[in-house]
């Protein structure tokens, strides 16, 4: 049952940080509200104050800056998917954001909210991890920038303090010759939480050898993670089907080794390998044809 709370809607980040400084411990931040509203309904969250940050002008811009793009934290998935710079520079992130909930959810849900919620199955996190995502976090009087991998420390758990606010995300633009892919498995196509999701980014050099490979897998461990061993394994090899198949099996094995054999392993191990294979094919096999 929904508890009672006050509602505050600051007009600018400075005012918002003042409010967080004063009431942070008893406040739940509402950006799009698609997660918070459910926690309020079920009583999982019982804040004294709801702080609506959805209209902070400083958090609603997409600003390309050199090799990077700074993305405002309260832009909705729909706004980002429709944004020409985001579409051009972040195809896997766009694909991932397109998988979130339904259009109604994407019309209000935000990228900052997806990070702050830190769900193991967050769609946007694996593709952002591949683009060196850095999170801009502000509190009254200071700010810090933290790598996304470091910010998220476990399932629904992160390093954010009650008086801190995510105001933006810095992502590296796609570099020449790189391709990327995002794939997910859910119970149904829309309105489902990912059971397994993965993003892969890579590049072949002029001789058709894998020069860079970055792999991030979500939903299978407490937080989405980079598969650095498999990344190193792929580098310097030709993307033949045999190599790609081997890499996809390695990804699955590494995850099973990490989380342990469970009742779901019999399904998950081949499913992870299959999903990784799809991504690897998108990135390395199609491009070798070109």
């Amino acid at each position: 049952m929904r508890g009672h709370f006050n509602y505050l809607r600051p007009d600018c980040v400075t005012e918002c940080l003042d409010m967080l400084d004063q009431y942070g411990n008893e406040t739940a931040i509402l950006a799009g509200g698609t997660d918070v509203m459910i926690s309020l309904r079920t009583g999982v969250k019982k804040p004294r104050i709801i702080l609506d940050i959805s209209r902070l002008p400083e958090t609603r811009q997409v600003e390309p800056y050199g090799e990077t793009v700074r993305v405002g934290s309260t832009l909705t998935y729909s706004e980002l998917i429709d944004h020409p710079v985001i579409r051009q520079e972040f195809p896997a992130l766009c694909a991932a954001m397109g998988c979130v909930g339904s259009l109604q959810i994407r019309n209000v849900g935000t990228l900052g909210g997806n990070i702050a919620n830190s769900s193991p199955a967050a769609d946007s996190i694996p593709p952002m991890m591949l683009r060196d995502a850095e999170i801009i976090i502000q509190k009254k009087g200071s700010s810090r920038i933290q790598k996304l991998e470091k910010l998220i420390v476990g399932a629904y758990s992160n390093t954010l303090e009650p008086n801190e606010l995510i105001t933006g995300i810095i992502l590296t633009k796609i570099k020449k010759g790189y391709r990327e892919s995002y794939q997910r498995i859910g119970r149904r196509k829309s309105l489902s939480i990912a059971r397994i999701n993965a993003a892969i980014l890579g590049r072949l050099n002029d001789s058709g050898v894998i020069e860079d490979a970055r792999i991030s897998v979500g939903s299978v461990a407490p937080s989405p993670m980079r598969m650095t061993n498999v990344e190193s394994h792929l580098k310097g090899r030709k993307p033949e089907l045999k190599t790609i198949l081997e890499a996809s099996r390695m990804i699955a094995q590494e995850i099973i080794d990490l989380v342990g054999v469970r009742h779901s392993t019999e399904y998950k191990q081949p499913a992870i390998a299959g999903l990784a294979l799809k991504c690897l094919e998108d990135v390395f096999l199609d491009s070798s044809v070109n």
Partner: peptide, 15 residues
């Protein structure tokens, strides 16, 4: 202009 779920929106956000 955007379709949203009114169950996930606070009335205060309609302002």
């Amino acid at each position: 202009g955007k379709a949203v779920n009114s169950c996930l929106i606070l009335a205060a956000q309609l302002d």
